[in-house]
Design a protein around this nucleic acid. Structure first.
Lengths: 339, 339
DNA sequence: ATCGAATAGGTTACCGGTAACGCAATGCAT
DNA sequence: ATGCATTGCGTTACCGGTAACCTATTCGAT
């Protein structure tokens, strides 16, 4: 149908302009919906675009103007996690709806990996970046300052953000769960976490948890933070460890739900009754928590809302609209039947 | 420390060249590790880069040469799935290691969404794209042909790919599981799937499963394909449906593991014994399958290998190295204790 | 009728790299 | 000593848009 050979030479704006009988600049104005053209001109340009099958070259646009970039860098701890997957999904949908494209990266909780990623991404002159966590290398801070680029830090609440922060209050999550577990009769509890070498926000929840325990009469009997990534396995084996260490536990708080589920199955395999013999609580409100024979007691977190809010805040800042600097994404303790 | 003001004017290659006492072109050659410079020149340029803190502008490079783009577009069905998350993670790591950046998108199994994404992405003149599934709109095919851009289709095996295909043999997966279930005594089985409106590869597995059933003496009693996305919930309620429809089932094959786990819990809640009363099998080899009280019978699939292979094949093609057109990623039936 | 502002559109220069080409100096075989 | 290939490096043009600036027309108000 079309006259495409091996590799069709891309149609340029100049060709569109020529066919429409206007200058490049006018065609550019029409396509960017800027002002300064008549309805008649608009129609002629659009017809030419249609006829030639013009595909704009954003590379050229972004290069020529440095305001025209619609690239957003997003760096999360890992892509394999359902939680971050959900956040990323939400970010990408929102950005895409607003006309931006997402370049991703994962830092695996290592600040130097984030730095390497940022160095590369900045060479694409993105319109903004979304980082996660609040641990950044000095170089990262310096680069972001030098580029004066909009930044959103997500996941954790950060009261003095680089630019904008949208996150959960992990401390409060842990605190609330601590109080709840004590109120349900837990006295001798353990914490099971993961990623000991590169602690993420799980440790902040632990801090809140500890504070609540101490304030309300509970006691941290032991804790086990595995080197592995959080997940079912880690929860399973972490539970084995803490139980073998202390036989008198009456509750375990896990870094997140998958670990809690792993723990739940471990307890089940040992004939321990939950919550009669031992209570179990997680964090995240992952889907699996709700189809278990016993609904897992957990903190449900709004990952979709977090992503959407973060993306919208970033674009608002890019467009120069007013934005709140610190936004707390909602979390909610959901009592199940495991505490 | 540095003299950064509000917004540091970016250091350009010209400044680097001037400081090194060479021409822009020579500096460019050094940085691209092209040939045509002496060791002495190389050192001087590198010292100038160091001193000025030069950050290359890939936008300009990619724009000026159209061979220099290191942007790769990757479009998956969804980002929230652990399986696709794992593939994406693997792709991103591999691309990053090879010096490329990943722009993502998700199409939710709707070809038109993929088309819209591709249109946008092509305006960035990427070095290549990775798509998933084999359902593409005619416009997508035309655009890819016109741009003559390297393409890898992942996830499903495709014997006549647009360019390169790296995928699982879903048909064989289903076929193998069908034979296995019959060999373990299943006769009257059901299939529970998801995404009825936009079927993905789960349906191909079903086709293979059916063929095996018919060939080996089994019988498909009923099937339920939910509108929802695959997941624990969908599996739970899908199981309720097929069991209420047919009380005489002795086996259920699920589109994937999370659904199977949901089904397992449903059976458990109804006092059905697995596998004595009913057998359950999934697909995917997700982590949760191995910490369950009963190890789920499933097909383990190499998502990491799939991603890595796909990324490597794409880059090889971009670099003009020889590549196999059709690559099958390994899958393996893993007997558990649920069949 | 006159004037200033608003509107429509063109011209020029430039963003920061890279490809293509050219040329001098060097090395090596005859 | 001569011829020729190789190496090292500079010059020029260009990629495809956009910003900044400028001109000509139109229009309403005085």
């Amino acid at each position: 149908m079309s006259d495409s050979k091996k590799k069709k030479d891309n149609v340029t704006l100049a060709q569109v302009a020529e066919l429409a009988g206007v200058s490049k600049m006018t065609a550019s104005r029409v396509l960017r919906k800027a002002s300064g053209f008549s309805q008649n001109t608009h129609d002629r340009v659009m017809r030419a675009v249609e006829e030639l099958g013009y595909v704009p070259n954003r590379l050229a646009a972004a290069f020529g103007s440095d305001k025209a970039s619609t690239l957003i860098g997003v760096c999360v701890p890992r892509l394999t996690s359902g939680m971050f997957g959900s956040v990323l999904d939400s970010i990408d949908h929102t950005l895409s709806r607003l006309g931006y494209q997402t370049i991703i990266g994962s830092h695996e909780q290592v600040p130097e990996t984030e730095e390497a990623w940022l160095t590369t991404i900045l060479s694409w002159r993105p319109a903004g970046v979304i980082l996660s966590g609040r641990t950044h290398t000095p170089t990262v801070l310096e680069m972001l300052r030098d580029q004066a680029i909009p930044v959103v830090e997500i996941w954790n609440l950060n009261t003095s953000p680089i630019d904008i922060s949208v996150g959960f209050n992990h401390f409060d999550c842990g605190h609330e769960m601590g109080r709840y577990m004590v109120s349900r009769g837990c006295r001798n509890v353990a914490f099971v976490g993961a990623e000991a070498n590169t602690p993420g926000m799980g440790m902040v929840r632990f801090d809140g948890f500890m504070e609540a325990l101490e304030a309300s009469g509970g006691h941290l009997a032991t804790r086990e933070v595995l080197i592995d990534r959080p997940g079912f396995y880690a929860g399973y084996y972490g539970t084995e460890t803490v139980l073998s260490r202390r036989g008198d536990l009456d509750g375990i708080y896990y870094q997140e739900d998958n670990m809690a589920v792993g723990g739940l199955f471990y307890c089940q395999s040992k004939g321990l009754s939950v919550p009669d013999d031992i209570s179990i609580a997680g964090w995240g409100g992952m889907e699996v928590a709700s189809v278990l024979p016993k609904r897992l007691t957990t903190t449900s977190v709004a990952t979709q809302a977090l992503g959407k809010t973060a993306a919208e805040a970033l674009i608002a800042r890019i467009r120069g609209e007013p934005v709140q600097d610190v936004i707390v994404a909602p979390t909610r303790l959901v009592p199940g039947s495991t505490v």
